[in-house]
Design a protein around this nucleic acid. Structure first.
Length: 422
RNA sequence: GUGGGCGUAGCUCAGCUGGUAGAGCACUCGGUUGUGGUCCGAGAUGUCGCGGGUUCGAGCCCCGUCGUUCACCCCA
């Protein structure tokens, strides 16, 4: 009887051994700077009330209007798999009153997110992000720190070929003033229907159009940075000077457009040129109205999300992924059923003292088991057979050069710890 | 949602203008008794994505379908 194979759903990216080690490494490198800066872990659900995203992220965004995994649960509630991280953090902060204590609230998260898009290089329907949020303080120094933490994550990966782009979306007045002029400008252009409707949703998006003729047309469009209120301009200048003081390289991209509606003030993106069409490896910004929109206090926040999948692709492109193959310290080959019990016992106690120990299972010939030991990359091997059980000592074989030494089983732990310390 | 490329052993692929499948790597066993990496020998594995059509005959041609991949859109 043969059953049909079941495949993974379209667009999911899985990380299997040995590649999973690289993935794990990337994730840790990206988030460790946040831990070092006093941000604390927040573990959140991957599904939320759909309203959280329609209200928080914005109904006009592509993410919400056509990329959400939304379904009805058994109680008839509309549930959505989270397409981004910030809204969920805000919901949890408000719900648990974390914003009633010491500010800023500083948290980090890590996990998978979901968007129902056509898969493509670096774009998956389930993808991984790490992110942080700092909520409750509006201070350009905090903006600079958040950017610096993300930048440090990429530096931890050994990446050199990425760039940081920043801009400011200003405050509400700045944006309103700019919008009037931008719409006026756009109305003077000859646009196709699709583009007109995009402009109606968010005129800023036209800056992001990849078609050369559109780029050219938009080259003369009024730029938001020129409309910043004095306070916004001063704030943005401060962020820049802090970044310079920290030695973080950046370029100002006044045409930067982010996909989520809640951003205000400082916004930024990290871009890696070697990844194909999906070149953004991370991004974030400040969001002034989000918390209030979600029923909380009128507090400002700033945060980022970094794409773990794409960061890994970038690290592969720059060949910075360490070849840290998994290796155990000792490989035990039991010969015969008698020895298996002892192998299990020895392995168990060695592991308890931190020695990574594997056992050869099954009843393979010694040659085959040695081959398995070799493949595993284990540094030492012992064979447990009749004679070893009889006189309580084993030949400890160093795989790098084949040299063996006789060791009492009782001394094995000490001997290994001495040998491995080298 | 739209468009292009590709779907042959576990993996990477070859298969000439159609004549009923191959390589390398990996894997298993062996090269005389319980010791890996090199070498030598042997072996297993494919409904050539699926369905239909053209043909005496299709992995190769045509149509459909599914999957995958890249790009548009959008974004991490």
């Amino acid at each position: 009887m043969k059953f049909e194979k079941i495949q993974a759903p379209k667009g999911v990216r899985e990380y299997l051994p040995p590649e999973s080690q690289s993935f794990e490494w990337v994730r840790e490198q990206l988030i460790s700077p946040a831990k070092a800066a006093g941000y604390q872990l927040m573990e959140l659900p991957v599904f939320e009330d759909t309203n959280l995203f329609t209200r928080g992220v914005g109904e006009s965004t592509d993410v919400v209007s056509k990329e959400m995994y939304t379904f009805e649960d058994r109680g008839g509630r509309s549930i959505t798999l989270r397409p981004e991280g910030t809204a969920g953090v805000m919901r949890a902060v408000i719900e648990s009153n974390l914003d009633r204590g010491q500010l800023p609230v500083k948290v980090w998260y890590s996990g998978q997110f979901f968007r129902a898009e056509r898969p493509q290089a670096g774009r998956y329907r389930q993808f991984y992000q790490v992110g942080i949020e700092a909520i409750g303080i509006d201070d350009p120094a905090l903006d600079a720190e958040v950017i610096a933490i993300a930048d440090r994550g990429f530096k931890n990966l050994g990446l050199k070929n990425y760039r940081l782009e920043i801009t400011s979306l200003g405050d509400a007045q700045s944006r309103a003033a700019h919008r009037v002029d931008l719409l006026k400008f756009i109305s003077g252009l000859q646009l196709d229907e699709a583009t007109v409707s995009r402009a109606a949703i968010n005129p800023l998006r036209l800056f992001d159009d990849k078609r050369p003729e559109m780029q050219e047309a938009m080259a003369k469009a009024p730029i938001l940075l020129d409309y910043l209120s004095p306070a916004s301009a001063q704030n943005f200048a401060a962020v820049q000077s802090y970044l310079k003081e920290m030695g973080i390289a950046f370029t100002i991209n006044p045409r930067m457009v982010r996909g989520l509606d809640y951003y205000t003030g400082t916004t930024f993106e990290f871009i890696h040129p070697d990844l194909g069409a999906q070149s953004g490896i991370g991004g974030g910004g400040r969001y002034d109205g989000l918390m209030e929109t979600l029923g909380g206090q009128a507090l400002s926040g700033i945060g980022f999300g970094l794409g773990v999948d794409r960061a890994l692709l970038a690290a592969i492109a720059e060949s910075t992924v360490p070849s840290q193959e998994f290796t155990s310290d000792l490989f035990i080959i039991p010969l015969g059923d008698e020895s298996k019990g002892q192998a299990l016992t020895i392995a168990s106690s060695l592991r308890a003292s931190g020695i990574r120990t594997e056992i050869a299972f099954g009843d393979r010939a010694l040659k085959g088991a040695m081959k398995a030991a070799d493949k595993s990359g284990a540094r030492y091997v012992i064979v447990l057979g009749e004679s070893e059980l009889r006189d309580g000592s084993v030949e400890l074989k160093r795989m790098s050069d084949g040299v063996t030494s006789s060791v009492k089983i009782a001394q094995l732990q000490d001997e290994l710890q001495r040998a491995l310390a080298l």
